[in-house]
Amino acid sequence: MFTYFPKNYMWSSAVLLSLTAGGQLGQIDRQLAPLRETKADPEAWTKAWDQAGALQAEFAERDLSRGCRRSASERYLRAVNYYLTGERQTAPGPAKANSYRLALETFGKAVETMPRPLERVEIDSPDGMLPGYLIPALARDSAAPAPVVIFYNGFDVTKELLYCIIREEFADRGIACLVVDAPGTGEPLRLRGVASRPDYEVPTKAVVDYLVTRPDIDPARIGLLGISLGGYYAPRGAAFEHRIKACAAWGAVWDYGALWQHRWETRSKTTPVPFWQLPWVMGTETMKQALEKVKAFALAEALPHLTQPFLIVHGADDSMIPLPHAERAIKAAGSRDKQLVVFDGVDGGAEHCSMDDPDPARQLIADWFAQRL
């Protein structure tokens, strides 16, 4: 794994996430280099990423003044990336709220200047409205409705980062993509306090109910993809919502509760987020309560019900969620068409979600859905 911070796995993993979402190492280094050899300071972390975002937003405004809308959009997206990378590891409070506000405002500016349309949607669900962005398929036959892939967040990620990660990979293959903030992520968590839930078939049903009403979407060709903890959310959703026709996990999960129990008991140094984050995402007051709630986030009982085509993409050296999680998950799945692809660090990234070399995984996943939808 590329460790930008030699003595801080958590911060290094955040840098990899930013790079996966299109961050530029030179831009990141310009702000974060002073933090590399100092004691970890959360306030300095937030400030550095906010400064990185603000600088890119400033350059975007300069590009706009010159009439360069496309380059401005790219600058805005990198600003969003940097605001959200810092925000994710900033504890709830004014600084976190400010970074998130800046990210949402800047993403809106990016959408306004994009060369391709991006549609914001609001999906009614038992947890309230779930906001998302629909990336339309490039029209191969303008009269025909398109297949679609729903893309779920990982642990405390956001739809804006998901967009930066996937961009037009599905669209260029004639597939629409819906990046969505579901319970325990993005806007529902940050703006309405909606915690995560183990029965992710509930929001999945709501999202599918919405998609089948759209004349531009083919209701018989709906796929579901999850990244990181989305490797629990997506298979769980597909196992009990069979209008999903294909499912992929970009990083597998088998038993998230056992994983967090181990992290907590050992005070693991390869935990990608601060420990306060689990109670926040689970909606509990204490770590003890969070560890109890997260026990339900296991796939042993659900995966036999997953019969659709199923793909797991995992890194051989994943230090956050070890490879045996992926091996147990693929074995338990009820699908006849199921495949585990393990990247070894040479053919693609071997770390968590292949974030040390993500593009081979991204291309493989998009191609796999194109063959099955």
Rank of each mutant, 00 (worst) to 15 (best):
E37C: 04
T38Q: 13
K39P: 01
A40L: 09
A40K: 07
E43K: 14
E43D: 12
W45G: 03
W45M: 05
T46L: 09
T46E: 10
K47I: 10
A48L: 04
L55H: 10
E58W: 08
E58H: 10
E58P: 02
F59R: 13
A60N: 03
E61F: 02
R62M: 10
R66P: 00
R70V: 11
A72P: 06
S73G: 09
S73Q: 12
S73C: 12
R75G: 13
Y76F: 13
L77I: 07
N81P: 01
L84E: 11
T85D: 04
G86Q: 07
Q89Y: 13
Q89N: 13
T90M: 05
T90G: 05
A91W: 08
P92M: 04
S99Q: 11
L102N: 14
E105R: 12
T106I: 06
G108W: 06
K109P: 02
K109E: 09
A110Y: 00
A110S: 08
V111A: 09
T113I: 03
R116L: 12
P117A: 13
E119A: 11
R120P: 04
V121K: 04
E122R: 13
E122A: 14
I123V: 15
I123C: 03
S125E: 00
S125Q: 06
P126C: 09
P126L: 11
M129Q: 14
L130I: 02
P131N: 06
Y133C: 02
L134C: 05
L134G: 02
I135L: 09
A137Q: 03
L138W: 08
A139H: 07
A139K: 15
D141C: 06
S142H: 11
S142R: 12
S142W: 09
S142K: 12
A143H: 10
A144M: 11
P145Q: 07
